[in-house]
Design a protein around this nucleic acid. Structure first.
Lengths: 192, 192
DNA sequence: CGGTAGTTTCAGAAATTTCTGAAATTACCA
DNA sequence: TGGTAATTTCAGAAATTTCTGAAACTACCG
């Protein structure tokens, strides 16, 4: 059985399928997501089967995984017993969800393992050195995640500002430093 | 054959091995990286074989992949024919490398596929809608990568400032807006 | 109840990825 | 040139992941 889609949609779906493995999901999961993302309305499982040419059970499992990622939502249409599925409309929301889930799965476990190991007493110079390296890694990850936790709260407008400003922010900071004198350089640790 | 490592290092190495699949690398590649990362000096391939208890050829392939990612460097010690390997010391450099490589492999291809598809002429309402969704995705990714390309130029100190400031940046921006009047709201597109 | 439309589960088949040992290759030295 | 130490390649074995069809389950209806 093979795909049955408008050519332009098919290219997109196939690409997501191929990239799937690089993104840590599998081919069909990638395809299902891509299909739902570009579809004008919710689809039911059998429509996905027909569109992608894969087995019903595979679709069921794929949808299950995508729901676990909160990247696909279950919908019910009136007077229809079937389950329908969509992706959230707001692309920024999608991005946040993705970031959130990846952090949860790919970063948090490492952070907690690092913390555990850093509690241990080193028994040799080798171990002492290893701990030091782990501490560096831990600190970096922690700084990044703190920044992320902080920035993710921003509403879309401010996020947009931040994005368009980019690195010019720091130049601005230096100016502000001089003018408003929030500067850490001028007065060491006033800590307001 | 099994591992032969100080317990504290072993925990770290095993964790990186397990996480490997979530990060899009395989178990042994993760382990090799972890081992080199915490080792006090460069190691040669046979030392890695001994430490991790895997085959020589597997180590060779793993190192090859890590070098392709620029996460592991080849070193030569004086009066020694063997190849030795290390990870870069500077953890911020490691982070940049990682970001750069992931972008290259996980984002850029999608961006270019999206561009291609967006050039096509839609042949139906379905395709028109699909293109619109793809355009949203394309724009978002482009904004993010532009921001990233911009911010990655920053030296470490400024990056640190940016990180510790986090979302407070926007509050600061509003203040600055009022004081220095760089504001986009007050005077539309003065563009300095 | 029994029937039906829909969904999920799961054991094993199929496909893919990872790993190994043996052979080939490279680089250096005398 | 031949000898040796180190490294890489690669075909197939082993392990893992993905996918399927059949069976089980769920919920609604008459």
């Amino acid at each position: 059985m093979s795909m049955n889609l408008p050519p332009l949609v098919q290219s997109f779906v196939l690409h997501f399928g191929e990239m799937g493995s690089r993104w840590g999901i599998n081919r069909t999961v990638g395809q299902i997501y891509a299909l739902l993302y570009v579809s004008p309305g919710p689809l039911c499982a059998d429509e996905i089967v027909a569109a992608l040419g894969i087995s019903r059970s595979n679709v069921s499992m794929g949808l299950r995984e995508l729901q676990a990622w909160s990247l696909v939502l279950l919908k019910h249409l009136p007077d229809d017993r079937r389950d329908f599925f969509t992706t959230p409309d707001d692309i920024w929301l999608i991005l946040r969800t993705l970031a959130e889930e990846r952090k949860k799965r790919e970063v948090d476990p490492t952070l907690s393992v690092l913390r555990e190991i850093l509690m241990e007493q080193p028994a040799s110079d080798i171990e002492r050195h290893a701990q030091q390296r782990m501490a560096e890694m831990h600190n970096m990850i922690e700084r990044l995640t703190t920044w992320y936790d902080d920035v993710k709260q921003l509403d879309q407008e401010r996020l947009a500002t931040l994005l368009t400003l980019g690195s010019r922010v720091t130049r601005l900071l230096e100016t502000t430093d001089r003018i408003v004198s929030l500067g850490r350089k001028r007065r060491p640790t006033t800590k307001g």
